[in-house]
Amino acid sequence: MLELDTVTAGYDRRAPVFRGASLTVAPGESVGLLGPSGCGKSTLARVAALLHRPDAGRLVLDGAEVRAWRHRAPRELRTAVGVVFQQPRTAADPRLALADLIAEPLRATGRRAEAADRVAELAPAVGLTADLLTRRPHEVSDGQLQRACLARALTLRPRWLICDEMTAMLDASTTAALVAAVETYRETTGAGLLAVGHDRVLLHRWCDRTVEWKECLPAEENP
């Protein structure tokens, strides 16, 4: 269970982006969070990925409350939540070849030996060819790079996956391919999904249930 309980977060304590947001993702469940841009749903996604410390409220993963964030969070909690961002260009270290990008989480956690096998397993799952794996981000298209970023999020087999506007920059075919890759991963592992976006048609088609952003907020916060 991934539970966000009355979370208040932002980049300035005096003026948080949102107050008191609550949302739950059960294991194996896929939840779409729908909202206009600039409403704070990306910040909520970062809180859920342990990347942003909320000003108030709790994040509970399988019953354990998260008390430390970013580097300070225990590694097994951090890596239990995989995350894919909107813009692959800024989300990929420009100096790493795609294969190294995908293997990086294994190297960072001292499991270098498994890297080659895991990359060989993930690349076809997201539709990357061997030729593309040797290239660096500026040598591939946005769609190809986003495939690698999705693979990287899956490298450590997270129990939850957060996709923050994963397909907003992509064409219809690549969108469908990435969603299919996510769903295949979830079928084999039973992972939960939080897909954040503004495309109603896409999220309704993709997810078990969708939540409007204002449903996360307490009634008095609704505009």
Partner: peptide, 9 residues
């Protein structure tokens, strides 16, 4: 990409 690295452990 730093967020992604942190999230990757």
């Amino acid at each position: 990409f730093v967020d992604a690295a942190v999230s990757g452990g």
